[in-house]
Computed example of a mutant assay.
Amino acid sequence: MMDEEAIGWVIRTRDPEFADWEAFTSWLEADPAHAGAYDALMAADADLDRIVPEEPVTIAMPANDPGERRWRPMRWLGGGAVAAALVGVVSIGLMNRSDIYTITTRPGETRTIALDDGTRVDLNGGTTMRFDRHDARFAALDSGEAAFTVRHDAADPFRVTVGDAVFEDAGTVFNIVHTASATRIGVSEGKVIYNPDAEAIALPAGRALSEDDSGLRVMDIATDAVASWRQGRLTYANAPVTQISADIARSLGVQLTATPGAGATRFTGTIRLDRDPARFFGQTAPLMGLKAVQQGDGWLLKEGDGPPR
């Protein structure tokens, strides 16, 4: 367990954007053995005599660092000295061989990632994901929406980490949305296992799962509605407008809010995406029985005069 934690800290601290030094220091101080395990893994990572330059170099510091510091050539430090040295200093060798990388799309932007194992991941707008250069069977959806077309391997299943949850494929095409308040997954082919080491809920094609503050819900979903944003449409069955608004904003890259009354309404049907906001909202708002009002650079959905069309 301790070695796994140490590996996790090695991976995190070699990220040039890592800034959680307080938590890292607390972990080191919690048990004297932590520093030894971390040192051993770090020392095994590179030959410092080859990596560290003869002259000091300035390295990028976390945004909360009080000022510039410099790395001075040294042999690897042991025990608690590593903790002190690493608070504010990132190993040059580790920065040069970071395995975990992040891909982010802007709202309205889409991107396709082809992994080495044959899996394809389509990122919708406003999405942040992490991948591992040395492990094509790993992905983490930090926020946003992504569709997965997975090459199945029963001996080495593809897993997606989403917050505290894990989704494991079983020969699958599926779509995941992850926001600060909820996680939703829909499966169009094969099967996905939700938290295989805990609840182990099987989601075959045509099933969906939603997790939010109220708990878990498993429901039916039309397979052609899964990841329909890739075909330029959004398909819903009794979905709240608050959810639909977030999906529209992510897909089109527009600022969109809804009044409490409009947000509480529900909609069943298909919305065609259109990059022209005025044309899109002119057609879509009445379809949902709502009105759309432009407010500066954004749009507001409000209650309309009639029922959804």
Rank of each mutant, 00 (worst) to 15 (best):
I193K: 12
F18L: 03
G88N: 04
W299R: 07
R120M: 09
V160Y: 01
H178S: 09
R159M: 14
F174V: 01
V218S: 01
G67P: 07
D164W: 10
A63P: 00
A154M: 07
E54V: 04
V10C: 06
T257P: 00
P62T: 02
E22T: 02
V90E: 05
D213T: 07
T235I: 09
Y194I: 00
R14Y: 06
A222H: 05
A249Y: 11
I176A: 05
I248M: 04
P32T: 05
T242Y: 01
I100G: 04
R272A: 02
V121N: 09
A155S: 10
W76M: 12
L28C: 11
P196H: 15
R75K: 00
N175L: 13
G263P: 03
A85V: 00
T284E: 02
L203C: 11
R130Q: 13
P32D: 08
N124W: 08
A202W: 09
D276Q: 13
G93Y: 04
A46T: 00
G78Q: 07
D197Q: 12
L94H: 11
M74Y: 02
Y38L: 08
W27R: 03
A227H: 07
D169H: 12
V254H: 01
E109L: 10
Q231I: 02
L301M: 09
F158S: 02
G261Q: 15
A140K: 06
V187G: 03
A205I: 00
D47M: 04
Y194H: 14
V87P: 01
R111V: 09
D153Q: 15
A30M: 07
A37L: 03
A249S: 15
G67V: 05
G263H: 05
Y38C: 00
P157A: 04
E168G: 15
V52R: 01
L300V: 11
M2W: 03
G79H: 13
G171R: 12
G79S: 03
H34I: 06
D276I: 06
R309Y: 13
S251I: 10
L290M: 11
G190H: 13
R97D: 13
L209F: 09
R111N: 11
G80I: 12
D247I: 11
